[in-house]
Write a protein that binds this DNA or RNA. Structure first.
Length: 592
DNA sequence: GTAGGGTTAG
């Protein structure tokens, strides 16, 4: 069942009638849903077949486009649409994120005088919110005469999904002041937007309390949202309590819990739950596979990862892009770059994220500082192993291990401890260590340590513009504009070129932006750059889009190495960050 | 007779 489209499956099924075989042996939920749909349809149970098809991930695309086509045809014939049709049309626009058509329909609604219909307005709010036009959604919402549960929930959900959780909570509070009582939909919406630290500490448990008080605690949607919410803010204990207390553990609840463990670097628990789920014959979804692969990567357990990969193939999910992304990450984190690129090459439809995953893999695997501890980001564990190595095994740590320790502390923001390691080391620190320390100083805005690290680097890497630029950034972040000017002057006095292989910078509105593949890692290998460069060219020709940060770094490298740049491919790409592109283009054109 | 809102993953 590898990568079959719905249409291929349909064709196959109508021909063979071996429906039961397919539904029994296909564990890929997407394919199975489609198969069941056809099964019921073929036996004349059309109603439940349609219900099933509605749950299928492709249904909104196929059904939606069919509906919109007939809707537009009717419009061309100047037939007046009913309010029901308008609602459905808006719903289709929402599901396909088509706000352009949606706003045209909006105009039609205003012309036909249906602009105070409650259902239509809720649909409009939802349509705008789903396609990211949250301001338009707000405008419609505010223009409504009356609000009910659905319209309130639509706007709250819209804000949540557009990353405006605080505003969602704000509106939720306003809703509580009205006569309209929130229902389970509303709670799911507001809780899922509760992601920033402040909202979490103020609201998560309060909302949970509300849910219990209103008797929604057995609602599976709410429970999985709460598990997700607790896990994302590090309260894994609460998530576990919720999970264990829930009566029916359906597949989504299990998935949420597996990814909750995975998120909290509890890969072992994640794997255990997955295996338990597998043995209990709970249908394994692609979500579960993705999370558990993530856990394998974090634990760097290649054998288990390979077993899951085998399962993926058996289930016929080996063309699901989420799973492929997770496989690439897993192999990469386990240090098996060959297998990662094999998976990538076997993929028929490569999207933007997969390309980036693949490149990050190359970057990760060329990392100077490369340890399992560093990957999982477990500071305590890393320090524990570092000490254990010294005390239990009587091994003198090598410079790379010190570098790793510095990285571990600094990335967590403990710059103080990181700085101490420099002093305690028996050998002199190298440029890589000071660079990683400097980047962390920038991230945490520490001027004092940043200055020291930068000045060390001026000595260690006299030709590199990077420490100058980063120090300038740190000063700028602290509002020390005089210092910014001084750093630039110093850079000129020392005769440092603005651009070297792998590093570049642009100046936009007086702000310096440093770009490098080294943003992903400390790459020092030319072969890796060559791979990255080849990939970026391939991706440009296929997708006409690319992450500008990586692209710039690759092209700068290519330019420094004297490669002939593919200007046509570059110009054909409508990149989102136009100013970066313009700069690249003028830079490349003037050079060539 | 018919309409509008929700959960998990790379």
């Amino acid at each position: 069942m590898h990568g079959l489209s719905v249409y291929q499956i349909k064709a196959m099924l109508y021909g063979s009638r071996s429906l039961n075989y397919l539904t029994t042996y296909t564990r890929d939920s997407q394919v199975r849903t489609t198969a069941l749909f056809i099964l019921r349809l073929s036996r004349g149970i059309s109603l439940s077949a349609h219900k099933l098809f509605d749950k299928s991930p492709q249904s909104h695309v196929t059904n939606g486009y069919q509906f919109l086509a007939s809707f537009l045809q009717q419009n061309r014939l100047n037939k007046k649409p009913t309010k029901f049709q308008l609602c459905t049309a808006l719903n289709c626009c929402a599901k396909t994120h088509n706000s352009l058509l949606g706003s045209q329909i909006h105009t039609k609604i205003l012309n036909t005088g249906l602009d105070q219909n409650l259902y239509i307005n809720s649909s409009l709010v939802n349509m705008y919110a789903k396609s990211g036009a949250i301001l338009d959604a707000m405008r419609v919402f505010n223009g409504m005469e009356f609000h009910d549960q659905v319209s309130w929930t639509s706007i709250i959900c819209g804000l949540s999904q557009n990353g405006q959780g605080k505003e969602a909570i704000c509106l939720f509070k306003q809703m509580l002041k009205t006569q309209i009582i929130p229902n389970s939909f509303t709670y799911v919406s507001v809780i899922s937007g509760c992601t920033d630290q402040e909202s979490v500490s103020k609201c998560s448990e309060l909302l949970h309390g509300h849910v219990i008080k209103l008797g929604h605690e057995n609602n599976k949607y709410i429970t999985s949202t709460l598990i997700d919410n607790y896990s994302k803010c590090g309260k894994i204990d609460k998530a576990v309590t919720l999970f264990e207390g829930s009566i029916t553990k359906d597949d989504i609840l299990l998935n949420s819990m597996i990814s909750a463990y995975s998120h909290n670097l509890l890969g072992e628990d994640s794997l255990k739950l997955f295996i338990k789920m597998h043995k209990a014959n709970v249908s394994l979804s692609q979500h579960a596979l993705t999370s558990v692969l993530d856990a394998c990567g974090a634990l760097t357990v290649l054998q288990q990862g390979k077993q899951i990969h085998a399962l993926v193939t058996k289930m016929g999910s080996d063309q699901n892009t989420f799973i492929i992304g997770a496989l690439i990450n897993m192999y990469s984190k386990c240090g098996n770059i060959n297998e990662a690129s094999h998976v990538f090459n076997q993929t028929v439809h490569k999207n933007n994220i997969l390309w980036t995953s693949m490149m990050t893999s190359y970057a990760q695997n060329s990392k100077v500082v490369l340890t399992a501890c560093n990957h999982s980001g477990l500071l305590e564990k890393g320090v524990y192993y570092f000490e254990k190595m010294r005390s239990d095994y009587n091994l003198a740590p090598e410079i790379d291990q010190y570098a790793c320790l510095i990285d571990l502390y600094a990335r967590k923001g403990d710059l103080e401890s990181a700085r101490k390691v420099f002093d305690e080391m028996p050998v002199d620190a190298n440029a890589v260590m000071w660079s990683s320390f400097l980047s962390c100083c920038k991230e945490y805005g520490n001027v004092e340590y940043g200055r020291e690290a930068a000045y060390k680097l001026f000595e260690l890497e006299p030709d590199s513009p990077v420490p100058y630029l980063i120090l300038g950034d740190i000063y700028g972040g602290a509002g020390l504009w005089n210092e910014v000017r001084n750093v630039r002057k110093l850079m000129e006095e020392n005769g440092v070129r603005k651009c070297t292989a792998g590093w570049s910078w642009v100046e936009v509105d007086n702000e310096v932006h440093v770009f490098s593949v080294g943003d992903l890692c400390h790459v020092r290998s030319d072969e890796i750059y060559l791979e990255l460069y080849k990939l970026s060219l391939e991706m440009l020709s296929e997708f006409k889009t690319f992450r500008p940060v990586i692209l710039r770094a690759c092209f700068n490298w290519a330019k420094a190495e004297g490669c002939i740049l593919d200007m046509a491919a570059l110009k054909a790409s409508p990149c989102k960050l136009a100013h970066v592109w313009r700069l690249s283009l003028t830079e490349f054109s003037s050079d060539n």
